[in-house]
Amino acid sequence: MPFTAPNLDYIINAHNYQKIQDCLSEASDMAMLIVDFQGTPVTEHSRCSAYCSLVRSNPELNNLCRKCDARGGLEAARLSKPYIYRCHMGILDLAVPIVLGGVYAGAIMAGQVVPADEDAQELETIAEGRLSAIDGDFFAELEKQKKLLPVMSRDRVQIIANMLFQINNYMIEEALLKIELNDRLEASGSQDGRAAEGRPAYNSFIIRPALDYIASHYHERITLDEMASRCNISSSYFSKLFNKITGETFANYVNTLRIRKACEYLDQEDIPITTIAFNLGFDDISYFDKVFKKIAGTTPSAYKKN
């Protein structure tokens, strides 16, 4: 049976992780980034230093940076705990493994701090390489930016690494628990049709926050990513689960609700069609006509006339 790597982006909500990562980065005075098992970023870099940005602007140095990230994450996975090391530039970094079902799925990469002198020699340096000559001005700017990096003891870094390890494990376990609980409900055959008012009875507790929000904010701009964040699950998992529970895609569900409301307005009140469209969140009247005809089977003007 072929190996299937766990999809980290399917498990976590990157938007929510980003907000937590940004806060942790500010509190710890460390740069942070979450990558998948291939080293591909899942979140955006938090507090990336000017020094490391400058280092990565050099193709040769950037290649060594990528090797450090890959080696650091794999070493953390091998140890099943945070791995603290020095990169090829002598800067202190750490990797916190993200393991799903016993399989390495990615890592939290953090660091970009200068190790205290008494700790420097104790840390392993990885991805060392022989560099070509570096322009004198470039090297001078590197030295200037390096002096601005925070200095941190190994004990302090270990405390931060342990904190990240515990927080990450808790969040991953919570996300997996939701998915496992949903799968168990599905397997037990608990789906017995739709509840009253068109609401699905089966395992809708996961996406209930999104359903409730849509029901009262259908006239506003609503995106799938925002609703996935509200349910604290990944966008891809939210999309799959939403379609399974409601029987519709997210966009069609929202549009159908809006068109039902439009029909109520057209039935009961003498309101201009353009006003109805704008009040229901449609910025383009021609798009409103198109969606209305697709769902109601006729145009808004024909519906109002009949």
Rank of each mutant, 00 (worst) to 15 (best):
306 N>F: 06
303 Y>F: 14
217 H>W: 03
53 S>M: 12
265 Y>C: 02
74 L>T: 12
19 K>F: 03
22 D>S: 06
257 L>V: 06
252 N>V: 09
16 N>A: 11
100 L>A: 04
152 M>G: 12
6 P>T: 00
264 E>G: 07
35 V>Q: 05
63 N>H: 13
114 V>F: 04
68 C>M: 07
189 G>E: 12
276 I>P: 00
256 T>E: 15
116 A>T: 12
103 V>Q: 07
199 R>S: 08
140 A>G: 03
1 M>I: 09
291 V>N: 02
229 S>C: 07
236 S>E: 13
17 Y>M: 14
63 N>L: 13
201 A>T: 06
179 I>Y: 04
9 D>C: 10
54 L>F: 09
73 G>T: 05
116 A>K: 11
161 A>T: 03
241 L>M: 14
193 G>I: 05
9 D>S: 15
74 L>V: 11
277 A>Q: 00
88 H>W: 03
172 I>Q: 00
32 M>T: 13
223 T>W: 00
221 R>F: 01
194 R>F: 06
83 Y>K: 12
179 I>M: 12
58 N>P: 00
111 G>D: 06
240 K>S: 12
5 A>Q: 00
229 S>R: 06
304 K>M: 01
284 D>L: 03
125 T>Q: 10
30 M>G: 04
245 I>L: 15
285 I>G: 00
188 S>K: 09
157 V>N: 04
124 E>F: 06
108 I>A: 05
236 S>M: 01
199 R>V: 14
90 G>D: 07
228 A>W: 01
158 Q>S: 13
82 P>Y: 07
273 I>E: 00
253 Y>E: 08
277 A>S: 13
278 F>C: 03
284 D>R: 07
76 A>Y: 12
174 E>M: 11
70 A>C: 14
269 E>T: 05
157 V>G: 10
245 I>E: 11
241 L>W: 06
101 G>P: 14
28 S>T: 13
304 K>A: 01
296 A>H: 10
131 L>R: 01
130 R>K: 08
170 Y>L: 05
160 I>Y: 13
124 E>D: 13
128 E>M: 09
152 M>C: 10
35 V>F: 00
